[in-house]
Design a binder for these strands. Structure first.
Length: 377
DNA sequence: TCTGGGGTCCTAGGACCC
DNA sequence: TCTGGGGTCCTAGGACCC
């Protein structure tokens, strides 16, 4: 199950005056389109397209910034509906999930395709947004069928028909095969799903690396991964990036942005009682080349002082060219419980941790900008 | 047309150890 | 003087997804 133009649909559901109008959700003027309603797509607007381009194609569209709190709420309700029809539901993203309908004939006294219909119908009627579905014998085929069913459709791929229908699609419609892999495969004469299905695994491995084997299995419809209902294991990294309002070589400003980003990230770690042992700082230059430098601590930490010190060190190691910077980002990885020896051996460190917690509380109540951590701290 | 933000996973090379 | 093999960890970059 996959919602159609999810973010844009939620906006239209919340504001009826937007129904029937071209709605484009995007970040800023320097950003890209996150979601475009079907009314906007008629003008050629697509997600991932620069907002400036979308504005030229469809100047009459309503352009909105994202409202993630609303999207999360709609997402929660959408998954609740799915779970009413089957206990085995696997969320794949905010607007997309797998529902295992094995055995629903007995449970609902209706064949799976009828149940699928009911799910989509209930999403439409109770949330006011459209969703599409694909019904097939394995998750990948179901996902590909969903794509083919869009918008607002349901496609039932009976196992013996799956290959006939999916085989004709370009290899790029297989999830995990993007533009680069598609180009590589095409250079070897493999352009459709059927071609890939007929490829020997060693040959595919030579082209795609480790991924090749699995890609062939998926193309051939032999990839039967179960619908997983267990929650996903814990998050492996936290990152935050900011595209600046304009390209700059102002080092002081870049450092201030980097530190603010890092502070917000490390506060998230503290809130979850986690620490990171690797800090990565990266920039995108005005010419769109990216550069990053990272460093690992001896033990995972969530102390502002530790992380900010890393960031300060990394900035000058990363920015080596006299070129303006477009985007700044910080990533914290190698996440684990922070290990402290503080109370006994490092009283100063203990005090700093207490201070960080106090900072978090103030910012939680009064906003991030009410307190600033000075540069030398 | 002028290119986001937040994630996951993979690869390749080098350091280091036994 | 010229030279092993295997394993692990770290770093940098890149592909891909929504």
């Amino acid at each position: 199950v996959d919602a159609d133009a999810f973010f844009a649909s939620v906006e239209q559901a919340l504001r009826p005056e937007l129904k029937g109008r071209a709605v484009i959700v995007g970040g800023t003027e320097r950003g890209v389109v996150t979601a475009a309603s079907y009314e906007a797509r008629r003008f050629g607007v697509r997600s991932a397209m620069p907002v400036a381009h979308a504005r030229r194609l469809c100047p009459q569209a309503v352009f909105l910034g994202p409202n993630f709190a609303a999207y999360k709420e709609f997402s929660r309700r959408m998954f609740d509906i799915m779970r009413k029809y089957s206990p085995a539901v696997e969320p794949a993203s905010i607007d997309e999930g797998y529902v295992d309908l094995t055995g629903t004939l007995r449970l609902h006294r209706a064949p799976a395709w009828e149940v699928a219909h009911r799910i989509l119908h209930e999403i439409r009627s109770s949330l006011g947004i459209n969703a599409s579905g694909g019904l097939a014998g394995d998750k990948t085929a179901a996902k590909m069928a969903t794509g083919a069913a869009k918008p607002n459709g349901l496609l039932y791929l009976e196992p013996h028909k799956a290959m006939t229908l999916l085989g004709a699609l370009p290899v790029g419609s297989i999830p995990g095969i993007g533009k680069k892999a598609q180009d590589k495969l095409r250079r070897h004469g493999i352009s459709t799903v059927a071609h890939l299905a007929a490829t020997s695994r060693p040959f595919a491995r030579a082209i795609l690396g480790k991924w090749g084997d699995k890609a062939v299995e998926i193309a051939a419809g032999r990839n039967f991964r179960p619908v997983r209902i267990e929650p996903r294991e814990s998050q492996k990294s936290y990152s935050k990036q900011r595209t600046l309002a304009r390209d700059t070589i102002d080092y002081i400003y870049i450092r201030r942005v980097a530190r603010e980003i890092a502070e917000r990230l490390v506060a998230r770690l503290r809130a979850r009682d986690q620490g990171a042992s690797t800090v990565t700082f990266s920039v995108r230059y005005a010419d769109f080349t990216d550069k990053s430098r990272s460093v690992s601590l001896e033990a995972p930490s969530n102390a502002n002082a530790d992380i900010l010190e890393c960031v300060d060190d990394l900035i000058w190691k990363t920015i080596t060219r006299p070129t303006a910077i477009r985007k700044v980002s910080v990533k914290l990885s190698n996440i684990a419980r922070p290990t402290f020896q503080h109370d006994l051996f490092e009283p100063e460190r203990y005090l700093k941790c207490r201070r960080d917690r106090a900072l978090d509380e103030i910012r939680e109540r009064f906003g991030f900008d009410t307190v600033r951590v000075s540069g030398g701290a």
